[in-house]
Amino acid sequence: MARRRQFRFLTTLGIGAAALALTFTGIAPATATASQTKTQSKVTDYVNLGDSYSAGFGSGTLTQNPMMPPGCLQGSGPTHVTALDARPRVNLTANAACAGLTTVQIAGTVPLLTPYLAGAELVTLTLGANDLDIRGLVTACSTLGSDAACDGALRLGNLAIPTIGASAHQTLRTLDAATRGKILVLGYPRLFTTSNGDQQFITAKRATQLNRLGDALNLAIKKATKRTSAKFVSVTGAFNNHGLGANKPWIYFNQVLPAGLNDPFNLHPTATGYLKGYYPAVKRHL
């Protein structure tokens, strides 16, 4: 993937929920894959759903999810999901993750996945980030914004956290009722590494404030798993010193034209981030 990873902040965490315009009707059965021919005596059936972090944005190229209606987009490259499916006794029966989905929209996919979830022994997802105005936050808090705009955006973001947590909890209750499998709710990494000081388009102070908002979101999602069978899996430690601004970032950012600032993969893990950050975190819970 010939894209340069540099640091500017005028993008979103995915394609936007409105742009998806998914109807979620008539989901096609998962196509047969080599993983379905595994002959081990005990195979773990696996379902993945959620937003762009579950859909692998940042790895490979943009692709239509073949299982879902048009507009459900994923990354085509290696991720924790593909790594799990490659394990000898794991069979990915459904991958219904779509970039841009909110907590409510993810809940809307659950009834349509009933045949897969009923037999699943493992379920993974990410949820909650699209309920925040990420584009507004990163734009307002970059050097292209202003102190007043950033302070206002951060205030609104923090005010939204309890509502997002409550919505995530309702989604997890819906998912919990649909499966007896182990549900792993994966958190989000801190987007910025601030130890190297100010970056070209954001100060260390503002990057730290955005990281704290991300921490608050993760905490709300962790609390949302209470009174469900879901387990929260943090990736914060795995991504330490690998955010934007690090010497070896695991977060994708592209300012090269023509995709440039509008590259939908921006602010997502790279393939390395998925395989070295997310995959080991999930594998520990298998």
Rank of each mutant, 00 (worst) to 15 (best):
A2C: 02
R4H: 08
R4Y: 03
Q6L: 12
L10R: 14
L13N: 02
G14L: 03
G14F: 05
I15D: 11
A18Y: 11
A18G: 03
A18F: 13
A18R: 14
A19G: 05
A21E: 13
F24K: 07
T25V: 14
G26L: 08
I27V: 13
I27H: 04
A34W: 08
A34N: 06
S35W: 11
Q36M: 15
K38Q: 12
Q40Y: 03
K42G: 03
K42W: 00
V43H: 00
V43Q: 05
T44N: 07
L49W: 01
D51C: 08
D51A: 15
G56N: 09
G56R: 07
T63F: 08
Q64R: 03
M67C: 08
M67F: 11
M68I: 02
G71L: 09
G75A: 06
T79P: 06
T82R: 04
D85I: 00
A86M: 01
R87F: 01
R87H: 02
T93A: 10
N95C: 00
C98Q: 06
T102I: 05
Q105K: 08
Q105W: 03
A107W: 01
A107Y: 04
V110R: 07
P111T: 10
L113C: 06
T114H: 11
Y116F: 06
G119W: 00
L122S: 08
V123G: 03
L125R: 00
A129L: 11
N130K: 03
D131F: 09
D131H: 06
D133L: 06
G136V: 10
A140K: 05
C141K: 12
G145N: 03
A149T: 12
G152P: 01
L154P: 01
L156P: 00
L159K: 12
I161T: 00
G165P: 04
H169A: 15
L175G: 02
A177D: 10
V185Y: 10
L191D: 06
F192Y: 14
T193D: 15
S195K: 15
D198L: 07
Q200G: 12
A204T: 12
R212I: 09
G214C: 02
D215Y: 07
A216L: 08
L217Q: 13
K223V: 14
K223M: 11
T228S: 04
T228A: 04
T228V: 08
V235Y: 02
V235F: 09
G237H: 10
N241C: 06
G243R: 07
Y252C: 13
F253L: 12
Q255W: 03
L257H: 09
L257I: 04
A259I: 11
G260P: 01
N266Y: 06
T270A: 05
A271V: 08
T272R: 13
T272G: 04
K276Y: 13
K276H: 14
G277M: 08
Y279G: 00
K283E: 14
R284Q: 14
